[in-house]
Amino acid sequence: MSSASAAGGKPSGSASAIAAASTSGYHILKIDGYSRTKGTPNGEALKSSQFAVGGHRWRLSYYPNSYKSDSADYISVYLQLDENVTEDVKAQYKINFANLVEKQPSWTSRTVRNFPSQGIWGYPQFIKRENFEKSEHLKDDCFTIRCDVVVIHDISTKETTAPKFVSVPPPELNQHLCELFKTEKGADVVFEVGGETIAAHRCVLAS
């Protein structure tokens, strides 16, 4: 027990907060003429235009016949940091068909990835081509994907104002009622008992 508590004084308090600042953004990529992209060799990508999120430049890489040879039956989609950096960029991302964006899981389940210079992270098995070509995502030989990105900036600790606690005094209702009885202040009822008169208050009697 601290000396302040032992002496009956008020304990001192302080507070702090850990803040992880971030910047979010998204990019929409439309593939118009899907059937004509199917001839792209395995491991070769068709890239989006460059876009900026969180002070960094990015691109989406679409692999019609997968990024890896062991997943050649799949479409792959990757997010690439399209610049050279001295330190890895920390970011979260999620890529989905644009018509499914509202159904995507929350950011709380997304791992923060470290993107080095020209580094990529993504989905080697985004969707199997056979299933994709029968799905609602492909319409008139076109489909659209959306990539959401959250760039994590420096994490810092800051001092904040400690919550203030108000000391509530002990109840004094009994003392107040006793004082009313002694002084007869505000009395509006009189009882006669054994030849003596006793002043009282209607509100107290009613309660």
Rank of each mutant, 00 (worst) to 15 (best):
S24H: 10
S24F: 11
S24N: 14
S24W: 10
G25S: 09
H27N: 03
H27M: 04
L29F: 15
K30P: 09
I31F: 04
D32E: 12
G33D: 04
Y34V: 04
S35V: 07
S35P: 08
T37N: 05
N42T: 15
G43F: 11
E44W: 10
E44V: 10
K47E: 09
K47I: 06
Q50C: 08
F51C: 06
A52Q: 12
A52I: 10
A52H: 09
G55H: 02
G55L: 05
R57T: 05
R57D: 02
Y62P: 03
Y63E: 00
Y63K: 00
Y63D: 01
S66Q: 02
Y67H: 10
Y67F: 08
K68E: 12
K68P: 00
S71A: 12
S71G: 09
D73C: 08
S76Y: 15
Y78D: 01
Q80Y: 04
L81M: 08
L81R: 03
N84P: 00
V85D: 04
V85M: 05
V85N: 06
E87M: 13
D88P: 01
D88F: 01
V89T: 05
K90H: 13
A91W: 09
A91F: 13
A91K: 02
Q92N: 06
Q92G: 05
Q92C: 11
Y93Q: 12
Y93V: 06
Y93K: 11
K94C: 08
K94L: 14
N96F: 07
N96T: 15
F97K: 02
F97Q: 04
A98G: 03
L100Q: 13
E102D: 13
K103D: 14
Q104R: 09
Q104K: 11
Q104S: 11
Q104V: 13
P105G: 07
W107P: 01
S109L: 06
R110S: 13
T111E: 15
V112Y: 03
V112Q: 04
R113C: 12
N114K: 15
P116A: 01
Q118D: 15
Q118A: 14
W121K: 04
W121P: 03
G122K: 10
Y123N: 14
P124V: 09
Q125N: 10
F126V: 05
F126P: 03
F126Q: 10
I127D: 00
K128W: 01
R129V: 10
R129G: 07
N131F: 09
F132H: 06
K134P: 04
K134N: 12
K134H: 11
K134D: 12
S135L: 08
E136L: 11
H137S: 13
L138I: 07
L138T: 01
K139S: 07
D141T: 06
C142W: 11
C142G: 13
F143I: 09
T144C: 07
T144D: 02
I145V: 15
I145K: 00
C147D: 06
D148G: 07
D148W: 06
D148L: 03
V149H: 01
